[in-house]
Design a protein around this nucleic acid. Structure first.
Length: 269
DNA sequence: ATCGGGACCTGCTTGC
DNA sequence: TGCAAGCAGGTCCCGA
């Protein structure tokens, strides 16, 4: 699931359930995620949840003694359920709340992570992150400045979290299509006007997905799954060999750094 | 500095 | 029908 819109949808879905709640205890069934679940998290008890924010694809739970970081990896999800709900195969962690419900972390592939950041400290994984895409910090000027002196392909540049966070494989491909930029184009060969267009479509694509995701997952405790939501709007992702919606040319599929990339060879230069 | 590859995992689809 | 290969929305770390 999780690219930035999915993570933000998760955050917004959780928020109303957390108001005034306290984590009474944490049940860990399987601590081996990408990194072992932090001992500080396992030891939590009677900890009021002060706030839930997001940085990139990390969900940040503010607690009295520090911050709990949750990353959903490739296949993770968080849901709010009654504590009595039977745990399934990949339900690795429950945060028990004082209202009789729990936040349940499910992650079949276990690429997710649950980490701890002590009060006042800056977690190394968050410290060097790039700008948030849905803020004014992401602009054509910023991208052009970051690209200066570099020759790397624009798609891997967009997916680099040191440049901009939250743009994953789907939305990188979709944004490049809408901006008419070839995914392999070197970043030092992109004019400022195109950077400006790219910054704009990144925001557009993420906001569209956010709106769609918000609708689908409004009832947060409902079974998750991944229904049609943003799928109808996809122009290139997962469409290798199919006709470009704009010009009819066959969408090309290539491998770029272990990941698949789809683009229209006629619309993107 | 940049790229590719491997690593971490399970589950689903595809093709023989 | 069975089985293996290949692929999947992330991202860190290593070596060249």
């Amino acid at each position: 699931m999780p690219e930035l819109p999915e993570v933000e949808t998760t955050r917004q879905g959780l928020l109303p359930h957390l108001r005034g709640q306290c984590i009474s205890r944490v049940d860990v069934r399987n601590p081996s995620l990408r990194w072992p679940v932090s001992s500080e998290v396992i030891a939590l008890h009677d900890a009021p949840i002060l706030n839930l924010s997001r940085r990139g694809k990390y969900l940040l739970f503010d607690l009295p003694d520090g911050q709990m970081l949750v990353h959903l990896g490739m296949s993770g999800s968080l849901r709010v359920l009654p504590q009595t709900a039977a745990a399934g195969k990949h339900d690795h962690i429950d945060w028990l709340l004082t209202n009789g419900r729990c936040i349940r972390f499910n992650d079949p592939r276990r690429f997710g992570s649950v980490l701890w950041n002590s009060q006042g400290a800056s977690h190394p994984l968050l410290a060097r992150m790039g700008v948030e895409p849905l803020t004014d910090a992401l602009s054509g000027g910023y991208l052009a400045q970051q690209a200066k002196g570099k020759k790397r392909a624009v798609k891997s540049f967009l997916m680099d979290n040191h440049v901009v966070v939250g743009v994953g494989n789907i939305y990188a491909q979709e944004s490049l299509f809408l901006a008419g930029i070839h995914p392999l184009r070197a970043v030092n060969r992109i004019a400022i006007a195109r950077w400006q267009a790219l910054a704009e479509v990144i925001k557009l694509v993420l906001n569209n997905a956010l709106t769609a995701g918000g609708t689908t997952l409004r009832d947060f405790s409902h079974a998750d799954g991944k229904p049609g939501y943003f799928q109808q709007q996809l122009n290139v992702y997962g469409r290798g060999g199919e006709a470009c919606r704009r010009c009819g040319t066959a969408i090309k599929l290539i491998r770029q750094g272990q990941r698949s990339t789809c683009y229209c060879p006629r619309c993107q230069h």
